[in-house]
């Protein structure tokens, strides 16, 4: 159980400016600005949930993860994870969490992956039997057999990420924080990572918090989404909720014979050629079914395609609405 209540965190940064004059000026007199990285952030995540944590760059995602993993002490507010305050009981706390930073490695560059794993066993004092069991399981699920004897520097990005994830799970954490786990991966690796996370969550009940810019990760994994912008929690709901609220447009592409396009509320003509049209539909005025019905009454339709906006487009609409 993860509980954050009214977490605040602000940083002071030196203002930098371009140009010789400004640089000389700031050499003598420096100005600072305060950035509210986390501004009254509260949420609760239950055991066994997979939560997608989204927001534009600089929204406060990493700061949140740092607070939850005990690296960063907030200015005010409370955070309890499985009953512990992460930054006060850091050592006990980190035994129960696993963290994967997509852009940062915990594997040793020049030695075989298995050596890094065995080092982690010692660092976390994992008992031999548990270690062997976890290693075997992870090797199988993430297909690591051939990678374990290879030095990290010779692995591809996708192979390395699979090893990183395994490394974060060797000590059987109850909670897993994934910071952009699929960044830069090819399509096959992405799918492998996603299906592994899903299985992990289903079989072991591991709680997963996932930050990502890839909406396909969210679609494939997250039952719940937290949207953060400028340090504030803007939205907390399921992907379906979001769809209902933000994916209200449809694009209809028609091929038809004869007749004139009818005027319907909520329908806008995007392009029109003889026998061919693309229409934008607002489903809050007319449902897709009604629109097709009235169109087919007045036209003889030979083909029709309906496109819903992608998750990606939805997020763009979302960011736009919240002006973040």
């Amino acid at each position: 159980m993860i509980q954050l209540e009214h977490i605040h965190k602000s940083f002071r940064v030196a203002r930098r400016s371009a140009g010789m004059k400004a640089a000389l000026h700031s050499f003598l007199h420096r100005e600072y600005t305060t950035i509210h990285a986390l501004d009254d952030l509260s949420f609760t995540i239950g055991d066994g949930e997979i939560v997608g944590y989204i927001g534009p760059n600089g929204a406060g995602k990493s700061s949140t993860i740092k607070v939850m993993s005990g690296i960063l002490t907030p200015d005010s507010g409370t955070c309890r994870i499985n009953g512990r305050i992460p930054w006060r009981q850091r050592i006990e706390h980190v035994r129960e969490i696993g963290v994967v930073f997509g852009q940062r490695s915990q594997l040793w560059w020049d030695v075989p992956v298995i050596d890094s794993f065995s080092l982690l066993q010692s660092i976390y004092s994992i008992p031999d039997t548990l270690y062997r069991q976890n290693l075997e399981e992870l090797t199988q699920l993430l297909h690591l057999e051939e990678l374990l004897r290879t030095p990290t520097r010779q692995l591809s990005l996708g192979q390395r990420m699979r090893c990183e994830i395994a490394a974060a799970l060797l000590h059987s954490p109850k909670i897993l924080f994934l910071d952009e786990p699929t960044i830069g991966l090819d399509a096959v690796s992405k799918l492998a990572v996603r299906s592994f996370i899903r299985e992990l969550n289903q079989n072991k009940g591991t709680t997963v918090l996932l930050t990502t810019h890839d909406m396909q990760d969210i679609e494939a994994l997250a039952q719940r989404i937290l949207l953060i912008g400028r340090g504030r929690l803007l939205l907390d709901g399921s992907l379906q909720d979001l769809r209902r609220r933000f994916a209200t447009g449809r694009i209809l592409t028609l091929a038809y014979e004869g007749g004139a396009l009818p005027q319907l509320p909520g329908i806008r003509v995007l392009t029109q050629e003889p026998g061919h049209a693309r229409l934008a539909l607002d489903t809050t005025c007319t449902s897709t079914a009604d629109a097709i019905k009235s169109l087919s009454q007045q036209l003889s339709i030979t083909d029709i395609a309906v496109e819903a906006p992608t998750a990606e487009e939805m997020v763009v609409a979302l960011y736009k609405e919240y002006q973040i």
Partner: peptide
């Protein structure tokens, strides 16, 4: 030269 100098100024 200019970039270097400006860079250096940042680090008083």
């Amino acid at each position: 030269l200019r970039i270097r100098f400006l860079n250096g100024l940042q680090y008083r």
